[in-house]
Design a protein around this nucleic acid. Structure first.
Lengths: 151, 151
DNA sequence: CTCGTATGGTTTTAACTTGAAACCATATCG
DNA sequence: CGATATGGTTTCAAGTTAAAACCATACGAG
C-alpha cells in the first residue's frame, strides 16, 4: 500500500488543496478559527473531536501554512492557532460551501446557524460565478483550458 | 471505535456537507462531472484512483443525491453518473476552491489548468462575499448567529 | 507547601478506510 | 473461438481515525 494519495502534482487548482483540507474536520477547524477560536481546548470543545485527531489536523494545517502557531495571547506556555493570509483566503470557499449546505442539507423549516453581515444583521448575498465582465456564468458557460492550450 | 464521525446533526451549513464531500476524491469526481465525464472508466482514467475507491465514492455521492445513476448514453448495460441539481449547486464551491488553490498552491510562474468563460476565453472574476446590498464583506465584517438568537 | 483540577497535548490500541491487485461477468472485435 | 475492453466486486495489507488512558505543566485553594 502507500499513503493517502497526494494531489500535489496535479496541475488543477481544485486538486492540490485537497491534501490540506480534503477531510472531515479541517474546514470546521478553519470555520471556527474565522469565528475567533484560537486555543486547542476551544477547538476541541466546539468540535467534539478526539484530541489526537485535533492535534494532527492542527499540525497539517500549520504545515500547509493555513494556520500559524503563535505564543498564547494570555501569556501561557502553550500556543494559539490563528489563520494566516492563506487561511483567510478560504473565506469565499466557506461561504460557498455554507450556502450550498444550507440549501441542500436542511429542510425548509429547519433552523440552522446563519452567517450575517455584522452591520445590517442580514445574510450574505448568494455567491455567483461571473465572467470577467460581470456576466453571471453557469457551469455550461465555462470550460477548462489545459496549460499550453491556445484558445 | 466507531465509524467516521458524522456531521448530520450539526446545525451548521458548513458541517453537514462534509459527510458527503469531505474527503480527498469526491470534489474531483464532481469537478470531472462538470467537465462532462459520465462513465466509470472515464473517471478512473482521469483521476487514477483505485476502482474500488471510485465505486465507493460514486455510491456515496449517489446516496447523497449529488450524482444520479442513469442508463448509459451509448445504450450499454452499465450506468452513467450525472450531476443532479444538488450536484450542480456545487459550482460556486468549486470555483471558490479553484481560485484559492491557484492563488496559494502554485508558484507564480507555474502553469495550471484554467477555468475560462466559454465565450470570451477569459478567467472568471474573483468570487467576493458581499452583504445583501452588494457591499464587499471581509471575514471580520460577518458573525455567526445561532438559531433562536435575536439580533 | 501540597493537593486537586484545568489545560494541552502524546501514546496506545482497536476498528475502519484506503489502495493495489486479483478476480469476474458481460460485451465487443477479429 | 479467443483476445481484449468495460464495469465492477473481492481480498488483503497498510494507513488512518477514534476513544481512552496517560503525562507534564500551571494554577488556586487550603
Amino acid at each position: 500500500m502507500v499513503k493517502r494519495t497526494s494531489h500535489q502534482d496535479s496541475l488543477c487548482g481544485v486538486a492540490r488543496p485537497l491534501d490540506a483540507i480534503g477531510d472531515g474536520w479541517s474546514l470546521l477547524i478553519i470555520r471556527d478559527a474565522f469565528d475567533g477560536l484560537r486555543r486547542f481546548g476551544e477547538f476541541q470543545k466546539s468540535l467534539g473531536l478526539a484530541k489526537n485527531i485535533l492535534a494532527a489536523r492542527l499540525r497539517t494545517l500549520v504545515d500547509h501554512g493555513i494556520l500559524q502557531a503563535v505564543p498564547a495571547a494570555d501569556g501561557g506556555r502553550h500556543q494559539d492557532y490563528v489563520l494566516t493570509a492563506k487561511g483567510r483566503g478560504l473565506f469565499p470557499v466557506l461561504v460557498a460551501l455554507r450556502q450550498w449546505g444550507e440549501d441542500h442539507f436542511f429542510r425548509a423549516d429547519e433552523p440552522h446557524v446563519r452567517l450575517v453581515d455584522k452591520r445590517a444583521g442580514l445574510p450574505l448575498r448568494r455567491l455567483e460565478p461571473q465572467a470577467h465582465d460581470g456576466t453571471p456564468l453557469a457551469p455550461e458557460d465555462t470550460v477548462v483550458r489545459f496549460p499550453g492550450e491556445n484558445p
